[in-house]
Design a protein around this nucleic acid. Structure first.
Length: 130
DNA sequence: GTTCTGACA
DNA sequence: TGTCAGAA
């Protein structure tokens, strides 16, 4: 199928499909005209890309992870040996990013708290670890 | 008519 | 990511 049908089937814009290819996440064949040709399997791949993107992985990481996952109906299932370990590292990376954001939030709370009355933002409640 | 690449917001 | 231009 060509890009238009692919976009309709996946719900992902043509622009994004081209971007995924540029990032090495998808490698559709080409017609003599230069038009991209996607396979049915590519539809599942795009679904996996969306899932991994939602999980906070970068396109570079997804490119490495993609060939190591199996279609598990609704989601994905890890296949390669070192995959789970790498995903754990990604999780730590995200945890550190959250810490940094919390610190930034704290800084702003301090600044806001020093301003005019009634403009302070309530402190957030702690979130449970996963 | 549909898609491609490159560029800009 | 969306959108537009110019070419095929």
């Amino acid at each position: 199928m060509r890009i238009k049908e692919m976009a309709d089937r996946t719900g992902v814009s043509e622009r994004l499909l081209r971007y995924y290819e540029e990032q090495g996440l998808l490698t559709p064949a080409r017609l003599p005209s230069g038009y991209r040709v996607y396979s049915d399997a590519d539809v599942d791949t795009v679904r996996h890309i969306r899932t991994l993107l939602a999980a906070g992985l970068t396109t570079a990481t997804i490119a490495r992870v993609l060939p190591c996952v199996r279609d598990d109906g609704p989601g994905l299932a890890p296949v390669c040996p070192g995959l789970v370990a790498e995903l754990r590292q990604e999780r730590e990376r995200i945890a550190r990013a959250i810490e940094d954001l919390r610190a930034s939030q704290g800084m702003l709370d301090t600044i806001i708290g020093a301003g005019p009355a009634g403009t302070a933002t309530p402190t957030r409640q702690p979130v449970p670890e996963g």
